[in-house]
Design a protein around this nucleic acid. Structure first.
Lengths: 206, 206
DNA sequence: ACCTGAACACCGTTCAAGT
DNA sequence: ACCTGAACACCGTTCAAGT
């Protein structure tokens, strides 16, 4: 229900991006796109400094825009976080495909989970924002993770089939466990290696 | 530093609780104690219904007292949570002592951690409140966990000495990992068994 | 159309006024 | 002393007014 019923953009395709708003105050599509990019860049900068749970007002101020504009582009705070996350999620998709071709199932899964945790610890507070959304397909991040669940699920099944991962864990539990390990890494960064090792061992059959 | 230097209550022991405050408006010690108990009971009830991150105002209303009274008894919201937790922490202390006498090191640790997770999932949101405080000895919960860290540390060392638990994990990491597993259980209660099993496997040496 | 920011709702915490 | 609740600070979200 999120995509508009009509996707054609033909009428605006060849407008110059730097063009000033029309006299009537009309803005062209390029301005809107640019604001979106400004907000995403601002969010990344603010998240890096203050954590992913930084006040939304800080993001708006950093972008030089009003709070209302943030809400015009991103329905909620979670939606903004999701938009910042999409690059990470796409990269994890690609990584999964690659690892499946080049590694044994268990090694592929272990390497992928490590990267998953690394990306969830990119910003302080990020893992905490993601955790409750993971299981909810209606939440922005949960929605964005659908594809991730498929590819991660394939890797998981591979590893379970050859007996290197316990069979009572499903994709969602695995991702939730990894998400929780990211929370631990956030608390104890100097023990990140041990926490990751703990996670991989924990998935081994008993 | 939490117990009063003088614990005798003799002078007030036989006062009837329903007695009115003295004309001058002076309240006796029993009233104050009673308010504290009212607040703790209210907190337990509200936490059970709304989670440990319920608004403080809800607790005050449930107790039939003003918000200011909550702050008179508990310096902050975390302090109230800590006060609700002390029973659990004391029980975990006792359990550790008991398990050390009756079980092999690894079994004792596994059983204790399971109970630790169970108590952190008593109220929704509790594990999330505890996690960031665990490592901070100045926080109310972190302070209250000092003793826990000692006894858990003893169990951990026992298990590490006989080679049944990996040696790169210290008490604080172990408790943080268990805390994180409690967060997972909160998200996926029907997979609590798998999550606990994951935790115990994860602690095994590689 | 899109942007702005004042306004509203909510919640933690404080403190002047009451007893 | 202790209790009360209005007041303040903060933050997410909305919406009437501007362009």
């Amino acid at each position: 229900m999120r995509e508009s019923p009509e996707g054609r953009l033909v009428a605006y395709q060849d407008r110059t991006p730097s063009q000033d708003p029309a006299p009537g105050g009309r803005r062209d599509r390029a301005d809107v796109r640019r604001n979106r990019e400004l907000l995403l860049a601002a969010a990344r900068a603010v998240y890096a400094e203050e954590g992913a749970d930084a006040p939304l007002k800080a993001v708006a101020a950093r972008a030089g825009l009003g709070v209302g504009t943030v809400y015009r582009h991103f329905a909620t705070q979670d939606a903004l976080v999701e938009a910042v996350l999409v690059d990470h999620l796409a990269a994890l998709d690609g990584l999964a495909t690659h690892l499946r071709c080049t590694h044994e199932p268990h090694d592929a899964l272990a390497a992928w989970l490590q990267e998953f945790v690394r990306r969830l610890t990119e910003y302080r507070g990020l893992a905490g924002v993601v955790l409750p959304q993971m299981k909810d397909p209606h939440s922005p991040v949960g929605q964005a993770c659908q594809r991730l669940r498929e590819v991660a699920g394939e890797m998981l099944v591979d590893a379970q089939r050859d007996g290197s991962v316990r069979s009572d864990v499903d994709v969602l539990l695995m991702l939730t466990l990894a998400n929780a390990v990211a929370l631990v890494v956030e608390q104890r960064p100097h023990q990140a290696g041990s926490a990751l090792s703990f996670m991989v061992s924990g998935l081994r059959p008993e």
